[in-house]
């Protein structure tokens, strides 16, 4: 099976911290891969590097077998790759509909659209629909995101990424701030997105969630991939061992 998206030997240093140290990564079409690792292992840095949010010192990124170079996040978006960052990256003064469509505004038809006028009602309606379908706890799409709870903000960021991803979706700790019901919704959403044939990368510290939704698990430690497992054949103990380094030399074991 050829990988949809693959990275080889990515390296990046921040001052004295070698955040990525020859990290590898791969994911197949329609697959859910969990990316786990201790705090500071380099997971978020890897996601940024893979989505045009970070310059790399060395390494190679392949998309559908061809080498690609993402200078900006927009380059990745164009290929259908979306990210929910750990810091969410929403504009707090804009409401959720405005955030949802930021950079992809629906314009009014005809000459007005050419002049830069936006179709606000339509954007609101579509956002409301997306939130309802996600079962998110966002009550109204016209409330500024800055006035929302942490979980509501997270819902907005997820809804936005899910709405636009059509090849690959990165979720960096998407359930960190969510309540029980909303967490459930996110996990269900991940499955639904996968059912649409979209690949999902899930970063999470919750091993039960990882085991529930992923097909494979890749473990990151000190900036490099140290192990890959088929989810069906692994246990929480094994994963934790790989993360902490108690169990070593598992690379390529799967």
């Amino acid at each position: 099976m050829t990988a949809l998206f693959e990275a080889r030997g990515l390296s990046r240093r921040f001052g004295r911290v070698q955040a990525l140290d020859g990290a590898d990564f791969d994911i197949a079409e329609g697959e859910v891969v969990a990316l786990i690792g201790d705090n500071g292992a380099g997971k978020s840095t890897l996601v940024k590097a893979l989505t045009g949010n970070l310059d790399l010192e060395s390494g190679q990124i392949l998309y559908e077998g061809r080498e690609v170079h993402f200078a900006t996040p927009h380059d990745a978006s164009r290929l259908g790759i979306e990210v929910v960052h750990q810091d969410l990256a929403l504009a707090p003064h804009l409401d959720s509909a405005q955030n949802m469509f930021l950079g992809r505004e629906i314009m009014r038809p005809g000459i007005l659209g050419r002049l830069g006028f936006m179709d606000t009602p339509q954007m609101r309606q579509r956002s409301a629909q997306a939130f309802t379908e996600l079962g998110s706890a966002v009550r109204s799409v016209v409330v500024p995101v800055g006035a929302m709870s942490g979980g509501q903000k997270q819902s907005v960021a997820i809804a936005r990424a899910v709405a636009w991803a059509n090849k690959l979706l990165f979720l960096d700790e998407p359930t960190a701030a969510l309540g029980v019901v909303q967490t459930r919704n996110v996990l269900d959403t991940i499955k639904r997105v996968r059912d649409r044939g979209i690949s999902v990368v899930l970063i999470s510290h919750s091993m039960p969630h990882v085991l529930e939704v992923s097909d494979r698990v890749q473990v990151l430690r000190l900036g490099r991939r140290v192990a890959t497992y088929q989810t069906s054949g692994t246990t929480i103990e094994e994963l934790v061992g790989a993360m902490t380094g108690a169990l070593d030399n598992q690379e390529g074991a799967a």
Binding site: F131, T132, G135, R139, V141
Partner: peptide, 11 residues
């Protein structure tokens, strides 16, 4: 729309 039956309003 599994989960909460909440509806998000557009206005």
């Amino acid at each position: 729309g599994s989960g909460a039956p909440m509806e998000t309003s557009a206005s």
